[in-house]
Amino acid sequence: MRSISVTMFTTLDGVVQGPGRADEDTRGGFTRGGWGARYDDEVLAAEMGRGMAQGGAMLFGRRTWQDFTAAWASATDGNPFTAHMNAARKYVVSRTLDSADAWQNSVLLRSTGDVAALDGELSVIGSVALVRSLHAAGLLDRCTLVVHPLTVGSGARLFDGPAPLTEFTLDSCLTTGKGSIVATYTRVSPA
Protein backbone atom coordinates (compact mmCIF):
# COMPACT_ATOMS: atom_id res chain seq x y z
CA MET A 1 0.00 0.00 0.00
CA ARG A 2 1.22 3.49 -0.87
CA SER A 3 1.18 6.44 1.51
CA ILE A 4 2.34 9.95 0.57
CA SER A 5 3.38 12.46 3.22
CA VAL A 6 4.26 16.08 2.49
CA THR A 7 6.37 18.45 4.58
CA MET A 8 6.02 22.07 3.59
CA PHE A 9 7.39 25.27 5.12
CA THR A 10 4.89 28.11 4.85
CA THR A 11 4.26 31.65 6.04
CA LEU A 12 1.11 32.82 7.81
CA ASP A 13 -0.18 34.11 4.48
CA GLY A 14 0.41 30.71 2.86
CA VAL A 15 3.54 31.41 0.82
CA VAL A 16 5.74 28.35 0.30
CA GLN A 17 8.16 29.81 -2.26
CA GLY A 18 11.86 30.10 -1.45
CA PRO A 19 12.02 29.44 2.30
CA GLY A 20 15.67 28.38 2.35
CA ARG A 21 17.71 30.93 0.40
CA ALA A 22 17.30 34.28 -1.35
CA ASP A 23 18.11 32.66 -4.72
CA GLU A 24 16.21 29.39 -4.12
CA ASP A 25 13.19 30.20 -6.30
CA THR A 26 12.90 33.61 -7.95
CA ARG A 27 10.16 32.65 -10.42
CA GLY A 28 7.65 35.42 -11.01
CA GLY A 29 10.11 38.02 -9.74
CA PHE A 30 9.97 36.68 -6.16
CA THR A 31 12.54 38.63 -4.12
CA ARG A 32 11.74 37.52 -0.58
CA GLY A 33 13.44 34.13 -0.55
CA GLY A 34 15.25 32.91 2.54
CA TRP A 35 12.41 33.83 4.90
CA GLY A 36 12.47 30.52 6.79
CA ALA A 37 16.10 30.26 7.93
CA ARG A 38 15.76 32.66 10.86
CA TYR A 39 13.22 30.28 12.46
CA ASP A 40 15.50 27.23 12.59
CA ASP A 41 16.05 25.95 16.12
CA GLU A 42 16.64 22.74 18.06
CA VAL A 43 12.92 21.92 18.37
CA LEU A 44 12.37 22.21 14.62
CA ALA A 45 15.54 20.21 13.85
CA ALA A 46 14.44 17.42 16.19
CA GLU A 47 10.96 17.30 14.66
CA MET A 48 12.33 17.19 11.11
CA GLY A 49 14.75 14.46 12.25
CA ARG A 50 11.83 12.40 13.58
CA GLY A 51 10.19 12.64 10.18
CA MET A 52 13.36 11.47 8.43
CA ALA A 53 13.73 8.53 10.82
CA GLN A 54 10.44 7.07 9.56
CA GLY A 55 12.20 5.87 6.42
CA GLY A 56 10.64 5.27 3.05
CA ALA A 57 11.43 6.77 -0.32
CA MET A 58 11.51 10.44 -1.20
CA LEU A 59 9.46 12.05 -3.95
CA PHE A 60 10.45 15.28 -5.69
CA GLY A 61 9.35 17.59 -8.46
CA ARG A 62 12.04 18.44 -11.00
CA ARG A 63 13.07 21.86 -9.65
CA THR A 64 13.44 20.69 -6.04
CA TRP A 65 15.23 17.49 -7.13
CA GLN A 66 17.74 19.53 -9.16
CA ASP A 67 18.25 21.96 -6.26
CA PHE A 68 18.76 19.11 -3.78
CA THR A 69 21.03 17.27 -6.23
CA ALA A 70 23.31 20.31 -6.38
CA ALA A 71 23.42 20.51 -2.59
CA TRP A 72 23.60 16.86 -1.55
CA ALA A 73 24.76 14.54 -4.35
CA SER A 74 28.46 15.26 -3.94
CA ALA A 75 28.44 16.30 -0.27
CA THR A 76 30.82 14.42 2.02
CA ASP A 77 30.47 16.44 5.22
CA GLY A 78 29.78 13.56 7.63
CA ASN A 79 26.35 15.02 8.44
CA PRO A 80 23.77 12.23 9.09
CA PHE A 81 21.23 14.20 7.03
CA THR A 82 23.63 14.08 4.05
CA ALA A 83 24.06 10.33 4.44
CA HIS A 84 20.28 9.87 4.64
CA MET A 85 19.61 12.01 1.58
CA ASN A 86 22.15 10.19 -0.55
CA ALA A 87 21.21 6.67 0.58
CA ALA A 88 17.43 7.06 0.26
CA ARG A 89 15.50 5.95 -2.83
CA LYS A 90 14.47 9.13 -4.61
CA TYR A 91 11.75 9.50 -7.23
CA VAL A 92 11.66 12.62 -9.38
CA VAL A 93 8.52 13.43 -11.37
CA SER A 94 9.37 15.31 -14.56
CA ARG A 95 8.30 15.47 -18.18
CA THR A 96 11.47 17.36 -19.18
CA LEU A 97 14.41 15.56 -17.54
CA ASP A 98 16.24 13.08 -19.75
CA SER A 99 17.44 10.97 -16.81
CA ALA A 100 17.79 10.91 -13.03
CA ASP A 101 21.43 9.76 -13.11
CA ALA A 102 22.78 12.96 -11.52
CA TRP A 103 21.93 11.76 -7.99
CA GLN A 104 22.43 8.21 -6.76
CA ASN A 105 19.35 6.07 -6.06
CA SER A 106 17.10 8.34 -8.15
CA VAL A 107 14.35 7.08 -10.44
CA LEU A 108 12.62 9.21 -13.09
CA LEU A 109 8.81 9.17 -13.21
CA ARG A 110 6.79 10.99 -15.86
CA SER A 111 3.40 11.62 -14.19
CA THR A 112 1.24 11.44 -11.09
CA GLY A 113 -0.10 8.22 -12.60
CA ASP A 114 3.39 6.75 -12.23
CA VAL A 115 3.37 7.92 -8.60
CA ALA A 116 -0.01 6.27 -8.01
CA ALA A 117 1.47 2.95 -9.16
CA LEU A 118 4.21 3.01 -6.48
CA ASP A 119 4.06 1.11 -3.19
CA GLY A 120 5.38 1.98 0.23
CA GLU A 121 5.93 5.14 2.22
CA LEU A 122 6.79 8.22 0.14
CA SER A 123 7.72 11.62 1.53
CA VAL A 124 7.73 14.94 -0.31
CA ILE A 125 9.78 17.94 0.83
CA GLY A 126 9.01 21.17 -0.98
CA SER A 127 8.03 20.59 -4.63
CA VAL A 128 4.90 22.75 -4.51
CA ALA A 129 3.85 22.09 -8.14
CA LEU A 130 4.10 18.35 -7.54
CA VAL A 131 2.19 18.62 -4.25
CA ARG A 132 -0.61 20.49 -6.02
CA SER A 133 -0.75 17.76 -8.70
CA LEU A 134 -0.75 14.98 -6.11
CA HIS A 135 -3.52 16.71 -4.16
CA ALA A 136 -5.60 17.23 -7.30
CA ALA A 137 -5.20 13.50 -8.04
CA GLY A 138 -6.31 12.57 -4.52
CA LEU A 139 -2.92 11.12 -3.61
CA LEU A 140 -1.96 13.13 -0.50
CA ASP A 141 -2.38 11.16 2.71
CA ARG A 142 -0.54 13.31 5.25
CA CYS A 143 0.63 16.93 5.40
CA THR A 144 3.07 18.42 7.86
CA LEU A 145 2.95 22.19 7.68
CA VAL A 146 5.67 24.22 9.35
CA VAL A 147 4.00 27.61 9.72
CA HIS A 148 6.44 30.45 10.33
CA PRO A 149 5.22 33.59 12.12
CA LEU A 150 5.56 36.09 9.29
CA THR A 151 3.85 37.24 6.13
CA VAL A 152 5.66 37.98 2.88
CA GLY A 153 2.74 39.25 0.80
CA SER A 154 3.49 37.57 -2.50
CA GLY A 155 4.80 34.30 -3.85
CA ALA A 156 3.58 30.80 -4.65
CA ARG A 157 1.00 29.43 -2.25
CA LEU A 158 0.51 25.79 -1.40
CA PHE A 159 -3.01 25.02 -2.55
CA ASP A 160 -3.37 27.69 -5.20
CA GLY A 161 -5.65 26.66 -8.06
CA PRO A 162 -8.15 23.84 -8.46
CA ALA A 163 -8.20 21.18 -5.77
CA PRO A 164 -10.73 18.62 -4.57
CA LEU A 165 -12.65 19.07 -1.33
CA THR A 166 -10.63 16.99 1.12
CA GLU A 167 -10.96 16.79 4.88
CA PHE A 168 -7.94 16.32 7.14
CA THR A 169 -7.69 15.69 10.86
CA LEU A 170 -5.00 17.16 13.12
CA ASP A 171 -2.68 14.42 14.41
CA SER A 172 -0.10 16.53 16.22
CA CYS A 173 0.92 20.11 16.75
CA LEU A 174 3.89 21.67 18.47
CA THR A 175 5.33 25.13 18.78
CA THR A 176 9.05 25.73 18.34
CA GLY A 177 11.12 28.06 20.50
CA LYS A 178 11.06 30.66 17.72
CA GLY A 179 7.27 30.64 17.35
CA SER A 180 6.78 28.35 14.34
CA ILE A 181 4.01 25.77 14.47
CA VAL A 182 4.58 22.24 13.20
CA ALA A 183 1.15 20.73 12.49
CA THR A 184 0.62 17.27 11.02
CA TYR A 185 -2.68 16.40 9.34
CA THR A 186 -3.98 13.09 7.95
CA ARG A 187 -6.60 12.81 5.23
CA VAL A 188 -9.89 11.41 6.54
CA SER A 189 -12.05 11.76 3.47
CA PRO A 190 -11.30 10.72 -0.06
CA ALA A 191 -10.45 13.48 -2.49
Rank of each mutant, 00 (worst) to 15 (best):
M58Q: 06
D23E: 15
A46S: 10
T31L: 10
A45Y: 00
D41N: 02
V43Q: 09
R38S: 13
K90V: 10
T151I: 14
E121R: 15
D40S: 13
N79E: 12
Q66C: 07
Q104W: 05
V152G: 04
V115P: 06
G113T: 04
R27I: 11
F60H: 10
A73E: 08
D98F: 01
M52E: 09
G49L: 05
L108Y: 09
S123N: 11
R132P: 03
A102Y: 08
A136F: 08
R38Y: 00
R32T: 05
V146Y: 00
D77F: 03
I125L: 10
A71S: 13
S74T: 13
L150K: 07
S127Q: 07
G153W: 10
M52P: 01
A53S: 14
V115F: 05
G34T: 11
A46M: 00
Y39D: 09
R89D: 14
L139I: 09
S99T: 14
V124D: 06
A117F: 08
R63V: 15
A37W: 02
L150A: 03
H148G: 07
L139A: 11
A102V: 08
A83E: 12
A137V: 05
G56P: 06
M58E: 01
A46I: 00
E121F: 01
T96K: 10
N86S: 09
L130Q: 11
A73R: 09
D114Y: 03
A117H: 11
A37P: 01
L130C: 07
L150D: 02
V115R: 13
G113R: 05
V128E: 12
L44Y: 00
S94N: 09
A22W: 02
A156I: 12
V93S: 06
Q104A: 15
A71T: 13
G155Y: 07
A83Y: 00
A73L: 12
V152H: 01
G138E: 04
L118E: 04
S123L: 03
A22Q: 13
V93R: 04
L130M: 12
L145C: 03
V43I: 15
G78I: 05
V152C: 01
E121K: 14
N79L: 08
F60A: 10
A46E: 08
G120D: 03
R110T: 12
Q104R: 15
V115Y: 06
V92P: 05
D25Q: 04
H148E: 02
G126E: 01
M48E: 07
G126K: 03
R132D: 03
L140T: 15
P80M: 05
T76D: 15
R32F: 04
A70Y: 00
F60M: 08
L150F: 07
R50W: 00
G34P: 10
A45F: 00
V93C: 05
A129D: 15
V43A: 10
A116E: 14
V146L: 15
D77E: 06
G51R: 14
W72V: 00
T112V: 15
